[in-house]
């Protein structure tokens, strides 16, 4: 009766969530780095960089994530022969990380850009007035303040990312939604139990994460 007392099933469940954790961890780091770089491009005085940043955001923010993940698999891997690892499972994992990162980076970029708008123009002016270059002004004065202003929205983006990571199941990675599907297939009598355990696991981890980001946002807020 109890699906999760079976060690094999428990293993499927744990492996599924470990994949979600790994997908989220790697993708959030890449998305944060790429997204910050994109935001810097979008506020830079160089038209080509601005255009690149804008194009990235418009393309990836408006394409369904499922399509992007499919493209990574069928386009990058199957057609163009891009292989991230000889291990099939790891290869799917990295293809998933690429898709999740480029997609999430677009949202991170826009969050940080809105954060930049919360930094008073006088801050950048003062930085320029003491002789800082554009780069120094951005990295030492504007971005640190912008980043603190958008911790809460970034938290929402990363929470969304962790749930979006289940889409990588569509290209064969045994992450949690795939694991759930497998368990339901072999335990049709326990659909609700399986469903609530999987959904509950997300909730149990993500609700405190959300509060954590809120706490951090308050703690690091720049007083004006």
């Amino acid at each position: 009766m109890d699906v999760f007392s079976d060690p094999t099933n428990r293993d499927v469940y744990v492996t599924g969530f470990l994949w979600i954790l790994k997908l989220t961890a790697a993708s959030s780091v890449f998305a944060l780095v790429i997204g910050t770089a994109l935001a810097a491009m979008r506020v830079s005085p160089v038209p080509v960089l601005r255009a690149f940043g804008t194009a990235w955001v418009n393309i990836f923010r408006n394409t369904p994530l499922t399509l992007i993940i499919f493209f990574c698999y069928f386009g990058l891997y199957s057609t163009l022969g891009f292989t991230a690892s000889d291990n099939l499972e790891l290869n799917n994992y990295w293809l998933g990380v690429i898709g999740l990162s480029v997609y999430t980076a677009a949202f991170v970029c826009e969050a940080i850009r809105s954060g930049i708008n919360t930094v008073p123009a006088g801050q950048a002016e003062a930085a320029r007035a003491i002789g800082m270059t554009f780069r120094q002004t951005l990295t030492m004065i504007v971005l640190p303040q912008a980043g603190r202003a958008v911790i809460a929205p970034l938290g929402s983006i990363f929470i969304a990312l962790s749930k979006n990571a289940t889409i990588v199941g569509t290209i064969g990675l045994a992450e949690s939604s795939n694991a759930m599907k497998d368990l339901i297939n072999s335990n049709g009598n326990a659909v609700f139990q399986i469903f609530f355990v999987f959904a509950g696991t997300f909730a149990v981890v993500l609700i405190p994460t959300g509060y954590g980001f809120g706490w951090l946002a308050n703690r690091l807020a720049v007083k004006r």
Binding site: G122, A126, I141
Partner: peptide, 8 residues
């Protein structure tokens, strides 16, 4: 500056 503009 009029508005000080110290790095907050």
């Amino acid at each position: 500056f009029q508005s000080f503009n110290l790095f907050a």
